[in-house]
Amino acid sequence: MIEKIHNHQKQTKNHIKTSASDRFLQVFFYIFIGLFAVVCLYPLLLAVGTSFSDEVSVTVNGYRVIPRQFSLEAYQTILGSLGKNILNAYCVTIAVTVTGTLLSVVVSAAFAFVLNVREFKPRGALNMFLYIPMIFSAGLLPWYIMCTKYYHLTDNFLALILPCCMNAFNVFLLRNFFRSIPEELAEAAKIDGASYLRIFRVIYFPLAKVGLVTVGLFYALSYWNDYYLALMFINKQQLYPLQYYLYNMLANVQFIANQANASLGYNINIPLETTKMATICVTIGPIILLYPFAQKYITKGVIVGAVKG
């Protein structure tokens, strides 16, 4: 009987022929997506091409994918005598991204799990506790005072992690993932005598892998790209993360370029547009490599998290 069904399925499969319109649509979509990919990639190629161009040729001819006049001046400006500082900034950023992402995923997952435990009475209040700051903000000054005067985060490595350790949106996303896991599994484990910590660790954590990777990537990206926390709390150069270091450098280049006509004392030709592009290339390098590995999780994760209410 089963063989019959299989044969029937095979026949059915063989019989379904794609129509001309389907094939046309398929070709159209491939071309469309291909073109879209090129459109997305083009600015990146422009940035790479421009970063290897001579500043004057960029000023006169504009951005080009293939440099008209090849130059490494922008990279020399960024990496030159300050290469050691850049390396240090890279180390800080990697440390922040790894530590921060792990901590954030654990904290967010634990919070999201608790919000799903029906027996936990104050979960409604916790929900509000999470929800209210999404709508109302106390403002910059109280936040700054809290972090500097009460938590003493100035010039502290933790300043780069703690203030954005838990993101409400990501917690809600994880809560929705956990909701998609059948409650019966947890109940069965509870009957077998498992504690909540064990249920969370053994059942929920592995089953929500897709969601955790997605949220983890969101956190990793936000830690990698963050310069604001360093701007607010870090004065020691040894603690500068990469983005802040480059943000600072770019601001300096801009200032010097503007200053050139305003006062005596500066006659330095700083590469400006090319420096910006070189900065982009230097900063996006490592994080862009993460995407291909996490791509399948991201797509799945965002879709699951989005449709479950």
Binding site: L140, L141, Y144, L231, M232, N235, Q237, Y247, N248, A251, N252, Q254, F255
Partner: peptide, 16 residues
């Protein structure tokens, strides 16, 4: 104490 040039002006970190 060094700050980026973007903070040079009203409303920047120095005011804060």
């Amino acid at each position: 104490m060094y700050l980026p040039w973007t903070e040079n002006g009203a409303g920047g970190k120095v005011d804060l």
